[in-house]
Simulated assay, not measured.
Amino acid sequence: MGTSTRWKGPAGGRWSNASRRLARLPEQPAKAAQRLESIADDQLRALHETLRADRSAFGLYDVASAAGEQLARVMGSLAAAGEESADALLARLIREVGGDGGTLADAAVRRGLATAVRDVRALHPELDHALDTGAARGGIASDILCDLYRFFFAGLVAEFLRSVVAEHLKLAVPVLIAVDPEERIAGSVANTVLGWLPSPCERADAPPEPGPAADPSPEPPPTLPEIAASMVPEVVGRALGLTTEETTGRKGAEV
C-alpha cells in the first residue's frame, strides 16, 4: 500500500452534482438529513461508476485488496489469542493492516479500521469485558472476527467518501446547519455497503461441496482466516461496485 498517486479530487458527472447539492442543503435539520441520504447514494454511485471505468482510480482497489488480505492474516492471530485491550487491538490493526501510506486510499483504510473496531465494540459489548478480564485469551470469537471483517470494508468505502464530502464542503462553503454532513453521509454509505457483503462465518458454516466418492483422505476444511482471504476479491468487488450484487439496493444493518 502507499504506492498509488495522491488524490487530486474527483470531478465531473455525479461528483459535481453532489457538490452542487451540498451547497444547496436546506437549513432545516430534518430536511437536510433527508437530503443527505440521497446525496450519499449519489456519492456511492459516482465512486462505483468511476471505478468501473478505471479500476485503478484513486488506487482504491489495490489498497483495499491488500488491506483485506492482510486483515485476513491478522484474523488468525486474533482467533488464537486476545491478550490485549480494545485500544491495543486497534493499534495493532492500524500497524499491521493500515500501514503508513500517505494517499487518500491509505488513510481510508486506517479510518475504516478505527470505525470497524468502534462498531464491533458497540455490537458486541462483551468484547471489552472479555479483553479487560483476560477472558479472551482463548481467542476472539469467530462471529466478532467476521463482523470486524465486514465492517472494515464498509467503513473503508464510507471513510473514503467522507474525505470526498469534506473537499466538496470546502469548495461549496454551505451555510452552517445543525447536522454533520460528513458523518451522516459516511454512516449512510456504510449501512448500504454492509448489506452487500458476505460473511466468512456464513461461508464456513455452509455445507461442503461433495467431493469424489472414492476419496479416502479428504482435505481438512479451510480455517476462518483462509476463507476470509479467499473472499477478498469478491468482497472488494462488491464494496467498490465492480460486481452486480450492489445493484440490489439492499440496506445493511445499522453500524
Rank of each mutant, 00 (worst) to 15 (best):
N17H: 15
D143F: 02
D62T: 08
A32D: 13
V117S: 03
G68F: 00
A229Q: 03
A141R: 07
R14Y: 06
W15T: 09
T244L: 14
P222G: 07
S142R: 07
C201E: 00
A136V: 01
V236T: 03
V109P: 04
E219W: 06
D119G: 05
D143R: 05
P222N: 09
F153H: 11
E49G: 11
D132Y: 09
A40R: 02
L93T: 05
R184H: 03
I144A: 03
N17F: 12
A46G: 13
P198L: 04
R110Q: 14
S85G: 14
V74F: 10
P208M: 03
A178H: 09
L47K: 01
H129V: 15
A105S: 13
R52K: 15
G82E: 02
G211D: 05
A228C: 10
I177R: 12
Q28Y: 12
S56M: 14
L93F: 07
P29M: 11
W15G: 06
G13S: 14
D62I: 00
S230L: 11
A141N: 02
R14S: 05
T3D: 15
V164F: 10
E37F: 04
D54N: 15
G211K: 01
E226R: 06
P212E: 05
A11C: 13
R150C: 05
A213G: 13
R45G: 01
S77Q: 10
G187R: 07
A57W: 12
S65P: 00
A66H: 06
L113W: 02
L171K: 10
R250E: 02
L25C: 04
D41H: 06
A186R: 00
E246D: 11
L113D: 00
E96M: 08
G112S: 04
R203W: 00
L197Y: 02
S16M: 09
A206H: 02
I144E: 02
V120W: 01
C146G: 05
R250G: 01
W196M: 03
R118N: 11
P225V: 02
L78Q: 05
Y61V: 12
G155C: 03
F152D: 00
A33E: 14
R250A: 08
E49S: 11
A33V: 15
G195C: 08
N191P: 02
R92K: 14
R21I: 07
G134C: 11
L104E: 13
G211F: 01
A228P: 00
A23P: 05
A206D: 11
A18G: 06
L161S: 03
V120A: 10
R184D: 01
A81P: 05
V164S: 05
S65R: 01
E209Q: 11
D87C: 08
I144F: 01
D143L: 06
